[in-house]
């Protein structure tokens, strides 16, 4: 009786073990060309040599062509020494048209089905800064009476909580102040999304839906290349543009000129003039995140 019970338990344990092992190996069984061995064995961005990275960029370009049927260029644009980006937004002249969010949507190859964007425009009651009461799905002619509009995106904190919580160091702050994600190193745990007090990070719940004609082919590894499913993404101040000296897409789209972008280390820059001459504040200053994104009023 005992022996047979022991045998039965052994058999049960063994079958559970086999089932567990099978489950654990499922990704290998389900292996498809979409997840190449090269990708699985790819090193962290910071550990890559120039030559290794070049191979990866070509592989990603090939994958983009196979997946989305479009020829793209994926670059690795590095920070410029002596440049630290800052962004300021004039709440007095923002009208809430969401053109910045639309430009971000197009520039950064966001999923079309969700209207995703790194920018949320909050419609707020005049006289209040309670972001919890802001509305993001307002409609009708803007600016509406009694409202003001506050676009919120990544604040590129000097003390970014999203970076400290990442268990695998897949996200970090670069020398020009932009916090980036190695999409191929991210494990998708979403700790950073939870840690961000500005709700600035997005998770790719599914593979982005993009038509070939909708894809922006000018891409970079750390910014706007089409992200894989299951990883985090965030605003990079359009580093594929701004590290080449260009203005970010959201600024160019702003019809009123509410957005000011530039080099915080250049005393003659427009951003420095705003910081020195306007009434400037940062969001949730008490948290100590020290954003590089500033808001200001005209008078």
């Amino acid at each position: 009786m005992d022996a047979s019970r022991r045998t039965a338990l052994k058999a049960l344990g063994a079958s559970l073990g086999v089932a567990g092992l099978a489950r654990a190996l499922q990704p290998l069984v389900d292996w498809t060309p979409a997840t190449s061995m090269d990708e699985l064995l790819q090193k962290h961005y910071k550990a890559l040599t120039k030559e290794e990275l070049a191979v990866i960029l070509r592989r990603l370009e090939d994958e983009a062509r196979d997946t989305y049927g479009v020829d793209v260029t994926i670059e690795d644009v590095r920070p410029t020494p002596g440049v630290e980006f800052g962004y300021a937004l004039n709440l007095s002249i923002c009208i809430g048209c969401r053109k910045c969010a639309e430009a971000c949507h197009n520039e950064n190859n966001h999923d079309r089905s969700t209207n995703n964007s790194y920018i949320r425009v909050l419609e707020m009651e005049k006289g209040s800064l309670d972001m919890g009461k802001g509305s993001v799905d307002y409609d009708g002619p803007v600016p509406a009476p009694g409202k003001f509009y506050m676009p919120v995106q990544c604040q590129q904190c000097r003390n970014p909580p999203c970076v400290s919580v990442c268990p695998v160091e897949a996200t970090w702050q670069e020398s020009d102040g932009v916090t980036v994600v190695d999409y191929n190193w991210c494990i998708g745990c979403r700790y950073c999304e939870a840690a961000c007090p500005y709700h600035a990070r997005r998770f790719n719940w599914k593979k982005p839906e993009l038509g070939a004609s909708e894809i922006n082919p000018n891409q970079s590894y750390l910014s706007n290349r089409v992200r894989p499913q299951g990883v985090m993404e965030k605003c990079t101040f359009c580093l594929h543009r701004t590290r080449k000296g260009q203005l970010p897409a959201c600024l160019e789209a702003c019809p009123t000129g509410a957005r000011v972008f530039g080099n915080l280390l250049d005393p003659s820059s427009e951003i420095r003039w705003v910081l020195e001459n306007k009434r400037v504040f940062v969001l949730k200053e008490d948290l100590g995140t020290q954003p590089r994104f500033y808001y200001f009023f005209d008078e």
Binding site: T256, G257, E270
Partner: peptide, 17 residues
């Protein structure tokens, strides 16, 4: 004049564009 009113396009870094 100080770049905080009115839309613009192009380069933030005028040394490059």
């Amino acid at each position: 004049q100080r770049g905080s009113h009115g839309g613009m396009n192009g380069y933030w870094d005028l040394r490059r564009g």
